[in-house]
């Protein structure tokens, strides 16, 4: 969709379409990052270790980026039958890969510095859904992560050249003179709304003054909440690039693994408490 909006803006401004698409995607993605960083900074106010926590967060970002790139690199290399510089240097990002790599790096970094990881992880996870919602708007702008074909009134068409259009064309679903994709679920917007709802839930849990959350609980809540959200929303996704195996997508397998991990952690804590 961003390609088309950028095309209209390009006509008005004379700027290059591709530059406008990149700018739109980057601005939305960076907005999400700034929100998470600012929120974590605010939550850590008063903590004497805040400076080290925030430096660690910034230092771990490249690792998160690397984690987000690993799955697309492996998928593209398997499809191409070779691993080239182009495959490594250009390609998409997978949220789950990035998020898990970042959280893992933060935990290891805290351990190396002798810090408790939970204040930082809890602060980051508390604002992650809001930042992610902006990221999903960037996905909608870029046209990636699109939904399954639908006849419902919510269905939208993506213009020629978009990933949805090309996937439908490649599958022979479009006539030769088609100028847009088939109507698809706006799955990026569904997830943006779901992320906002999850953010509201985490805020409610975090602001409860009667009991307060023990260390690590916000991280657990976020991981479990997003896993449920992602598992459900994947049924409305239609992009084959994300990988579907035995009827379930890669992200759904990851979501199930995370839910299982959360369950183990909660059972272990309960056993320790008793």
């Amino acid at each position: 969709m961003g390609g088309f909006i950028a095309f209209l803006l390009s006509r008005a401004t004379g700027l290059d379409v591709f530059v406008l698409v990149q700018a739109g995607y980057l601005i939305l993605g960076l907005t999400g990052f700034v929100i998470v960083f600012a929120g974590a900074r605010r939550d850590l106010a008063g903590d004497p270790r805040r400076g080290r926590y925030l430096l660690l967060f910034l230092a771990a970002l490249p690792l998160g980026l690397a984690g987000a790139r690993i799955i697309p690199i492996v998928q593209d290399a398997l499809l191409a039958g070779r691993l080239t510089f182009g495959i490594v240097a250009s390609g998409g990002l997978v949220f789950y890969g990035g998020a898990l790599a970042l959280l893992g790096a933060l935990r290891l970094g805290c351990r190396a510095l002798g810090l408790s990881p939970w204040p930082l992880l809890d602060a980051v996870c508390r604002y992650a859904p809001l930042g992610h919602a902006f990221g999903r708007l960037g996905c909608f702008f870029g046209g990636c992560c699109f939904g399954a074909v639908t006849d419902s009134p919510l269905g939208i068409r993506f213009p020629a050249g978009s990933p949805a259009y090309l996937q439908h064309k490649l599958a022979g679903l479009l006539p030769p003179n088609a100028v847009a994709s088939l109507p698809v679920h706006p799955s990026q917007l569904y997830e943006a709304l779901g992320d906002l709802a999850l953010f509201g839930l985490l805020q409610y849990a975090g602001n409860r003054r009667d009991r307060g959350l023990p260390p690590g609980r916000m991280t657990t809540l976020y991981l479990a909440g997003y896993a449920v959200l992602r598992f459900v929303l994947e049924f409305w996704r239609g992009d084959t690039i994300r990988g579907v195996y035995y009827g379930i997508s890669t992200s759904q397998y990851v979501a199930l693994a995370i839910l299982a991990g959360v369950l183990v952690v909660l059972l272990r804590r309960r056993a320790q408490a008793q």
Binding site: G3, F4, F7, V17, F18, V21, Q22, Y25, P72, D76, L79, A80, T84, G86, I87, S90, G91, G92, L93, G138, C139, G142, G143, C144, C145, R157, P159, A160, G161, S162, P163, L166, V179, A180, I241
Partner: peptide, 28 residues
């Protein structure tokens, strides 16, 4: 959409967008 399709007809898909979250696997 038709005007957009006309304007981009001669562009390769790689000129329209890039890989992954911005678009196409093709650029890889």
């Amino acid at each position: 959409y038709a005007a957009y399709a006309d304007a981009t007809r001669n562009a390769t898909s790689c000129e329209l967008s890039s890989c992954g979250c911005l678009g196409l696997r093709c650029s890889c």
